Simulated assay, not measured.
Amino acid sequence: MTALGFLHPGHSADDDYPRIEQLLGSDIRVDLVRADSGEDVGRADASLRLGAPHRLAAGVEQLRLSGAEAIVWASTSGSFGYGWEGAHEQVRTLATAAGMPASSTSFAFVHAARELGAARVAVAATYPAEVAGPFAGFLRAGGLEVTAVHAAGATAEQAGAWGEAEVLALARAADASGAEALLLPDTALHTVACLPALERELGTPVLTANQVTVWEGLRLTARRVNAPGLGALFRREPIVQA
């Protein structure tokens, strides 16, 4: 049994995680602890407060007691908002506090794109433009070319209420014509149930926040799982190490 620990911001789309656990179809356990600020994490300033070390540390002990072997901060804006170096420091602090390998959703996107061999990516973000722009900058700092960015301007609460139709509309609104993968960065967005439909619709690999977050936990523990229902990322071998 491999136990993966996730610190999740709030409640939006947290039910994606037990769904992923089911789709993995192997001896993988997904443990989720919430780091809830009570704020709209679609705002840049709130995201920085949410990712503060004392907030993340609050959930670490619970995940350690659960037997987690790796921990991932499951917030995109709460990690890339610190910039490339600041996000590295964030996960170093988290790893030290947890006593185990650690990462975040923002780094998960970079590592997952590399795993797919996707050097050029497009972004379909629920965020406002002032949040989506720094995410694109983070990806560029990770060596990826960002071909297009679509910012829907939704709040985390709004995005959390979207169903498959709205997620597909968000993906279609992004110009992915010059990209090798499309990225949907919001962990508040339910995407796991519609990953196959997204990839059929777009004809390209799709990386979504909760999907890559769990993949990152597996990468940290050197686990390789074939789970076609979770998209192209989970149909490729091997998982590479950074």
Results as ranks from 00 to 15, higher is better:
E89N: 10
V123R: 06
A68E: 05
D36G: 01
L207G: 03
L168Q: 08
A227P: 05
A119F: 10
L48G: 09
T155K: 08
T221Y: 14
A169C: 06
L184P: 05
N210P: 08
P101W: 13
G67K: 10
Q241Y: 14
L48N: 12
T105A: 09
Q62M: 11
W73Y: 14
S177N: 11
S104W: 01
S103F: 08
R235P: 00
A179D: 09
E69Y: 06
P205F: 10
T96P: 01
R34L: 05
N210R: 02
M100A: 04
D186R: 03
G83T: 15
E89W: 11
L198V: 14
E130F: 10
R200W: 03
A124P: 05
Q62Y: 13
G51C: 04
V60N: 04
F80W: 10
V214H: 11
L230T: 04
L65M: 07
A57M: 15
S77L: 08
R19L: 12
A209M: 10
A119S: 15
Q90P: 07
G217D: 08
V110Q: 00
S47N: 05
A119V: 15
F234I: 00
T213P: 03
S77T: 15
R29A: 15
T213S: 07
T2A: 07
V121W: 00
A179F: 06
S37P: 13
E130T: 09
A209W: 11
Q158C: 11
E85R: 15
L56K: 07
L23P: 02
N226S: 14
N226E: 03
A97S: 02
S103H: 00
S177T: 08
P228A: 12
Q211G: 07
L168F: 03
A124D: 14
A68H: 11
V214A: 08
F138M: 07
A74Q: 01
L182D: 03
P134F: 09
L230H: 02
E61G: 07
A74S: 04
A154Y: 09
R200D: 15
T126M: 11
L32S: 08
R236W: 03
E180N: 13
S66L: 09
P238I: 05
T191L: 10
L198M: 14
L218P: 04
L170V: 15
G42N: 06
A124N: 09
T147G: 01
R224F: 14
E237D: 13
G231A: 08
A122S: 14
Y82L: 14
R224G: 11
A193Y: 06
V41H: 14
D175R: 12
L220M: 01
R120D: 11
W215A: 03
R64W: 07
A151T: 03
F109E: 05
A124K: 10
P9S: 00
T126A: 11
L63H: 07
G42Q: 05
G217C: 07
R219D: 04
L4T: 04
R219C: 08
A70R: 08
T221C: 11
E69N: 11
V212I: 01
D40C: 01
E164H: 15
G10V: 01
D45H: 06
A52H: 12
A35F: 09
Q62N: 13
E180V: 09
R29C: 06
V41L: 09
F234G: 05
G178V: 02
G133Y: 10
P185Q: 11
A58R: 14
H88I: 07
V192Q: 06
T208E: 08
F109V: 01
S12E: 13
P196T: 04
